[in-house]
């Protein structure tokens, strides 16, 4: 239960980095994304249901053989989310968009790709 919950949180955190979370500063160094009204941290309603699986390999570094779980979910979810977007856009020749992949950045990438082909 705890491990599953940690994985849910980690995967969601990774999706946040991929799609939403960016610290934006203006030219004077003022943080613009300075409140939770601007900086979106995804919650359960922003993410799909997860199917979880795990491999069990005991570690030799402690007597119980246990490992931390923590933010392990973040490791895969950020590239998975970004790669899914890039894969969807690949017919347009789009190979890269800087994170976070906000809707406006994706729209601009699609427009730029369209203009390049004209």
């Amino acid at each position: 239960m705890i491990v599953e919950g940690q994985l849910h949180g980690g995967i969601t955190q990774g999706i946040g980095q991929a799609l939403y979370e960016g610290a934006v500063y203006d030219n004077d160094g003022q943080l613009l994304s300075g409140s939770m009204m601007e900086y979106h941290v995804p919650s359960a309603e922003d993410v799909p249901a997860f199917d979880l699986d795990s491999t069990v390999t005991l570690t030799n570094t402690n007597p119980l053989g246990v490992k931390g779980i923590g933010e392990a979910g973040t490791i895969g979810s950020t590239p998975a989310a970004v790669n899914a977007v890039i894969d969807a856009l690949s017919p347009l020749g789009i190979k890269h968009i800087d994170m976070p992949l906000t809707s406006e950045k994706i729209w601009r990438a699609i427009r730029a790709a369209g203009e390049g082909r004209r």
């Binding site: 939403y20 939770m36 009204m37 900086y39 979106h40 941290v41 995804p42």
Partner: peptide, 11 residues
Amino acid sequence: GAYAKFAHPAS
């Protein structure tokens, strides 16, 4: 009638 909205993800 209908209302269609694009909401700010955070606010």
